[in-house]
Design a protein around this nucleic acid. Structure first.
Lengths: 340, 340
DNA sequence: TTGTAAGCGTTATCAC
DNA sequence: GTGATAACGCTTACAA
């Protein structure tokens, strides 16, 4: 594989000149530049990014740390959409992405900082990390620039991009209230997710705004799992049969709730209205199709990447970005069945 | 950031010794090793993978070249599942993955070989590339080890992993024949996909095995797009109303066919049986749920990575792997409605 | 068991 | 405009 040394030899100039010619510096005569470029082409030269990064102390590479790159994570397309957005932006600014393997138990031995330092990534986008993940502390304390998805933490080298989950949840509840529902349950994710904290807050605010009392017992945790949510919904509906609507902190859990309702012989939306969160692909395909709060995860990924690159290249001093959300009304919600 | 030099200084030894101690060479006394490790820890040293790769001429990194990392590609989870499988295997053997950006028009200027060389990846997994993609020729000619997904090409440095698409298509057809169908149409992908070539071959063989005549006009191309497939299905069913079953080269297209059937007032499976291919996530959720040929894309990704690493580390001389498939019978297929 | 020194392919500094 | 030369952080003969 040809190096600048080879080119230098062939062109009868020094490596310095070759380097400058190839990198478009102005202080090299047009004639030598042409010659050098020609030779580089002839030798089908490719610069060695490794060597360059080593001396420049910059890799033009960002790490993508995702906890959902696992077999189960494939069900919703959230992780993938974020990745797609990140990928798209990075392509535009010619950054590369390296996938960090946190899933594998092998790698777990290495700390976040070690991971980043070894690979010498310039920065990191982090997604799907839990509140109590040890990585999180490291992230904040480390001096490696990073952008968090869905975790509102800022710092000198850390920014975030998220949606307004409080507002989203509020809108979901408002939609149900507008349909006449008075007893609205909730299946939340788990306490170790920021979004869960926000969504329940939005749920509460949504109720209170409408002078409905917030009853803690109507809220169950489904751990963002379809199965768990199904079980939770069954409990909820058995213990509080007057519940006519359930707000779920994820679409996947909403499917679980649908299944649970079916098991109890309840029809959606006639006997039970369901609102999800995320608007994953499946949601428009299931029957009945799911009313949900839509988040543009592609946009979130795209924004995360752009925020990170800004952070890296020291442009705009922004540290966070809120991506818009939207209530998508489909078939899983309907007017409350008025008992006569 | 601490380097081995710093450690050497602190420990009062040479860099050589540090290097050897940290890399577990035997020719260093237990006492110095302990001391060195201790100091490395104290300085929270991380090896610089860049420097190491540069001298070792090996990065322990593989490239992932996927053409479907785009917004539309998010609908089926195929790309993501492959990625997940690759990621899993790489995690186990401590390889990193860099995502190659082929989608972006910017990057398109660079050839495949340039991409790989610059980043100095040890090898590449390639997925979703079309027959006529200029990259494909490069791949075969280049000396960079690579593994192709779903494209049966082998060479000294190129292997592949795929499923037996001919057999899969045959089984799909057989299933329909067994249900009594005699006029079976097909919506294929497009000519630039190897899998399409194989699946139609399987379709033909499936028919012939059952002494049904193959009628070319019953086969339409849907370009792997839901919309196009819908249009194709409408044409097919209008022109050949006796068609009672359609075999589709992808699940996504099968959904298009379902929609087309609906538009024509045909009920699935009563009036029309549909078989898809891939078994994507959606398929079990739609109504009616889709009968399909299941491919384990995770396994394919996993195998691709393992094949590549084998190629790289020069173990087993295998160059290809066939992953098994399976007919999954759901609700979209049923017995042919016998006209009385 | 340990150290010296060369080298991986670049870019950067400074002199000419 | 161009060229020596050092430096980036590491591995690895070879020597001691």
């Amino acid at each position: 594989m040809a190096t600048i040394k080879d080119i230098a030899k062939a062109a009868g100039v020094s490596v310095t000149t070759v380097s400058r010619a190839l990198n478009g510096y102005s202080d090299v005569s047009e004639r030598t530049r042409k010659k050098i470029k020609q030779i580089a082409d002839d030798l089908s030269y490719s610069p060695n990014a490794l060597a360059r990064s080593l001396v420049m102390n910059k890799t033009k590479t960002i790490g993508l740390l995702v906890s959902g790159i696992s077999r189960e994570g494939a069900k919703d397309n959230i992780v993938f959409e974020v990745l797609t957005g990140v990928n798209e932006y990075c392509g535009q600014v010619e950054y590369d992405i390296v996938l960090f393997n946190t899933s594998s138990s092998q790698q777990k031995k290495k700390t976040y900082t070690q991971l980043c330092r070894e690979r010498r990534v310039d920065g990191v986008v982090i997604q799907g990390i839990k509140n109590d993940d040890p990585y999180l502390i490291e992230v904040i304390e480390s001096d490696i620039p990073c952008v968090l998805v869905d975790i509102p933490i800022q710092g000198d080298t850390v920014g975030y991009v998220a949606t307004d989950n409080v507002a989203g949840a509020k809108e979901a509840v408002q939609h149900l209230v507008d349909l006449g529902h008075k007893q609205i349950g909730m299946i939340n994710g788990h306490d170790r997710a920021f979004v869960s904290q926000e969504r329940i807050q939005g749920y509460i605010e949504g109720l209170e705004r409408n002078h409905l009392i917030y009853n803690k017992s109507l809220v169950y945790n489904g751990g963002f799992s379809e199965k768990q949510a199904e079980a939770a919904a069954v409990s909820l509906l058995e213990n509080y049969p007057d519940t006519t609507a359930i707000f779920c902190a994820s679409d996947l859990m909403a499917f679980g709730v649908m299944r649970g309702a079916k098991r109890l012989g309840k029809e959606v939306p006639k006997d039970l209205s369901i609102v999800g969160y995320d608007n994953i692909n499946l949601s428009s395909y299931v029957t009945p199709s799911l009313t949900t709060i839509s988040q543009d995860m592609y946009q979130i990924g795209y924004s995360a990447a752009s925020l990170l690159i800004e952070l890296l290249e020291g442009g705009d001093p922004k540290r966070s970005k809120i991506v818009s959300h939207e209530l998508v009304i489909r078939e899983s919600t309907g007017e409350r069945n008025q008992p006569f």
